[in-house]
Design a binder for these strands. Structure first.
Lengths: 256, 256
DNA sequence: AACGATTTGTTCGTATGTATC
DNA sequence: TGATACATACGAACAAATCGT
């Protein structure tokens, strides 16, 4: 009784959704019908629907109606395999992510930029702020739907040492790390991950086709990879929409 | 011009907030003042404020006003240290998380329960669904504010093998893993992490004092730790409110 | 292609309740 | 206790999107 009317109506609908009476994709009663069912004004039932929207339970489609949101099949992302078998690189581990669910992964050719490192990138790569870095940004899709954005930052010193393919806008299926290891003897060592959940910016919201309902977020995994010597090799920032992914990381000592 | 009035007002306020004219904690104009400033009805300016609330930019306090939300100092959580130095256990790694920022960490005594494993727990621990498991649940605080909820699940076989302290409701500062290793020779091996972002349930919202504005989420890290032999040792689920944490994980091969 | 019916979106007005100082 | 500020609720009108005829 203490609860306001719009909350009572919203909770009643929520019970129907979570109880299975209204299933994913179903249309819920129209505002006019809800007005009669609960004997409330249209504005009040609209407040109830807004409360459900804010919690991601329903979505409205102008001219059509209000629908229970589709549950998205979570996709399992393997971020790391067992230590000692090497940090999975680029396309290789990405393909293995997809294999588990037999979906088709595609990767855009990288967009290459050379620019000055901001405070964060410089700090992670152990460079002076403003030092030149190469960024390689790729869009990754699964079954044609946008799945993640990935940008890797490298110090210019690898290019100066001859690794010119770093600044070529071509995907390296065998991996940048293999290229650096085989041709230049640069071996990877430890890595460090940082996980951040934050609201998306406009470009991300557009790329991931995120609804503009305020309850959305993206998850970022920042991986700083070091050379065997301990020098930072690269920083990779991968951005995922939070509603489409589960992440699995494996590591630690292994008995194999 | 195409945008509705409430959006225009909301965007104007958003620019003032992000541009620094309105700072964190500041009160924004009252609804009556906004009504005069933008020459709109009270309901319209309220719609604008609701839009800002949904995006986490402001919060309302009945009887007081509407305020720009305080930016929370992100706390750096070290989830894993370098492989080969062992998966950081309970209190030990938790204390090290806190040390970096000189904050005071406290942990509640665990709430112990013996119950039947559901599908997920049974699957992770390699048990039959319905098999008996021990759960040890703790609340963790930093400087007195709730910081995370942690529940660990163990198979009953460790208790049957004599590890009776597993079912005692006392915090083990030296760690459960040390106890199992030193007294019973059970050594830890690989681990696997799963990361999930989801809406909080009622208990979590209460514990973390999360505002009921629909845009909140919690981040769960599920760590399945294996014995050296490959048998699952325990499943630990740690739940964090997403607005208070950043996570750092380190691992991989090390050159030390 | 045009139209009408349906449904949600926006905006206003108004009244009353509740929380805080 | 009164003043201020946000919360809830109702009614009304028109706009915009969608769909079927």
């Amino acid at each position: 009784m203490a609860d306001p009317r719009y909350r009572q109506i919203a909770e009643a609908l929520r019970r129907q959704i979570e109880g299975g009476e209204l299933r994913h994709g179903d249309q819920i009663p129209t505002e006019l019908e809800l007005r009669e069912i609960y004997d409330a004004s249209r504005n009040t039932v609209r407040d109830a629907v807004k409360w459900l929207i804010a919690r991601g339970l329903v979505e409205t489609r102008p001219g059509q109606g209000t629908f229970v949101v589709e549950k998205i099949d979570p996709f399992l992302t393997v971020v790391e395999s067992v230590a000692g078998f090497g940090a999975g690189e680029g396309t290789a581990s990405y393909a293995s992510e997809v294999a588990a669910h037999r979906r088709k992964a595609t990767v855009s050719d990288p967009r290459i930029e050379v620019h000055q490192a901001d405070t964060y990138v410089a700090g992670e790569l152990g460079l002076e702020e403003g030092a030149l870095v190469i960024s390689r940004a790729q869009r990754r899709y699964i079954d044609g739907t946008p799945w993640s954005l990935q940008t890797s930052y490298y110090s210019m010193r690898y290019v100066e040492a001859g690794a010119r393919r770093l600044i070529e806008a071509v995907d390296m299926p065998s991996g940048v790390l293999n290229y650096l290891a085989e041709d230049f003897g640069i071996e990877q060592g430890t890595w460090r991950d940082r996980i951040v959940v934050r609201p998306p910016d406009g470009g991300e919201a557009f790329f991931f086709k995120l609804p503009d309902n305020g309850r959305i977020a993206v998850l970022e995994i920042h991986r700083t990879l070091f050379e065997k010597s301990g020098i930072p090799l690269r920083l990779t920032i991968t951005t995922y929409p939070v509603d489409r992914n589960e992440f699995v990381m494996t590591g630690g000592e292994t008995s194999l």
